[in-house]
Amino acid sequence: MLKNKRQQQKNLTRKHLLEIAIKQFGETGILATRTADIAKHANVSHGTVFAHFSTQEDLLTAAVEEFGSQITQRLHELIDTNSSLSKILDAHITGLIEFEPFYTRLIIERRLLPANVTNTYVMIQSTISFHIGIAAQKELDQGIVRKLPVHLLYNTWIGLIHYYITNGDLFCSSGSVLKRYRHELLQHYIDLITI
C-alpha cells in the first residue's frame, strides 16, 4: 500500500515536471531553458528534476513524447469511431493548439536539438500521417478526395500548418496563430484535396 502511494506520488511529480518543462520550453525556448529554471517554476529542488530525468536530454525527449502521445491518442480514438477526414484534421489542429508554444519552439529549434529528439519527432509525425491517411483512404474509396500518395497528402497539410507556425510573428503578432487561421487553413486544404 505504502509503496503504491509512493509510486503514485512519484508519477504525479513526474507529470508535473513535464507540464512545467513544456511550458518553460514554450516560453523561453528549448535551448535557452535550463533545468534549474524548470525546477524553480515547479517548486522542487534541482536534484528532484534529475531524480526523474537523468539528463536534460531525457527530460526534453519525455516532453516531446508526452506531446506525441496526447495528440496521437486523440486521433486514434477518432479513427476508432469512424470520424471524417475533416474531423481528424480539426482534432490535429486542436491538439497542436494545446501545445502551440512548445511545438513552435520544437519545429524552429529542432535541427539544433539532440538526435533522439528528432527521432521521436519523426515517429510522431508518421503516426499522425498514418491516422490522417486512414481517414483519407475511406473518403478516397467513396470518391470524395483525390488520389494522392500518403506522404504528399500529409506533407501538404503539415507544410501549410508549419508555414504559419514558424512565421507566426508575421501572421499574428499576439496570441495563437493556429486559433486565428485554423478554419481558413482547414477549409483551404479540404478544397485542395476534394474532387
Binding site: 527521432n119 521521436t120 515517429m123 509525425q125 508518421s126 498514418f130 500518395p149 500529409y154
Partner: peptide, 21 residues
C-alpha cells in the same frame, strides 16, 4: 518503410528514427 510511406523521408533518416524507436 512505414516512415517513408507516411512522410516521404529519405531512407537514412527513416532508418535512424525506426532504430531509435
Amino acid at each position: 518503410t512505414f516512415i517513408i510511406k507516411t512522410q516521404g523521408l529519405e531512407e537514412k533518416a527513416a532508418n535512424l528514427a525506426a532504430k531509435s524507436m
